Simulated assay, not measured.
Amino acid sequence: MEIVVVFLFIAIVLFSADRLLLLLESRGHVNWRRTGRRDLSAEPTANLDSLLEDPDRGPVRRP
């Protein structure tokens, strides 16, 4: 009988955690089940050279 109580408790904890994560997802805090992964190829990218250059003097030259 104790094993049934343990499994019931685990099921309640998992269900509660799922509902909490769905609530947080609806508010935009996490991605859980409803939203898929972002397509990273569509995201804007920045080249390392453009991050290291000084906008006033142009690219930084190092020996």
Rank of each mutant, 00 (worst) to 15 (best):
R61V: 15
L52N: 00
R34Q: 01
F9E: 11
T45S: 10
A11H: 06
A11P: 05
R33L: 11
L52K: 10
A42W: 04
F15G: 11
E53S: 11
G58F: 08
R37W: 05
D56W: 04
D18N: 07
L14S: 10
R27Q: 13
F9Y: 14
T45P: 04
R62H: 08
R33F: 05
S16R: 00
G58Q: 11
L23N: 07
V6E: 01
N47F: 04
V60F: 00
G28I: 00
L52W: 08
F7Y: 10
V4R: 14
D56K: 14
G58N: 09
I3Y: 11
L21H: 10
D54G: 03
R33P: 00
R19S: 06
S26H: 08
R57P: 05
I12S: 10
L48Q: 02
V4Y: 12
M1Y: 03
R37N: 14
A42G: 13
G58S: 05
G58A: 10
V6S: 03
W32T: 02
I12R: 10
V6Q: 09
L40A: 13
E2V: 05
V30L: 06
L22D: 06
W32G: 06
V6W: 02
E53Q: 15
A46D: 03
D54S: 08
E25Q: 13
S26Q: 07
D39F: 07
D49R: 11
S16V: 14
D56S: 09
L24D: 07
S26N: 10
D39Q: 12
S26T: 00
R37L: 12
G28W: 04
R37Q: 12
F15Y: 11
E2M: 08
I12N: 09
I3P: 00
V4Q: 12
L22S: 09
P59T: 02
L48R: 04
P59D: 02
H29R: 08
T45H: 07
V5R: 11
V6H: 03
E25P: 01
E53D: 07
F9D: 12
P44Q: 01
L48N: 03
L24F: 12
P55C: 06
R61D: 15
L22I: 04
L22R: 15
G36W: 03
W32F: 12
R19L: 04
N47W: 00
L52C: 10
D39A: 13
L14C: 04
R34I: 09
S50V: 15
V5F: 04
S16L: 15
S16P: 01
P55G: 05
P44S: 12
S41G: 10
P44K: 08
S16A: 15
R27S: 00
G28R: 02
S41T: 12
L48M: 07
T35K: 12
L23Y: 13
L40E: 13
L8C: 10
P59F: 01
V6M: 06
L24K: 01
A42K: 15
A42S: 15
M1S: 10
V5T: 09
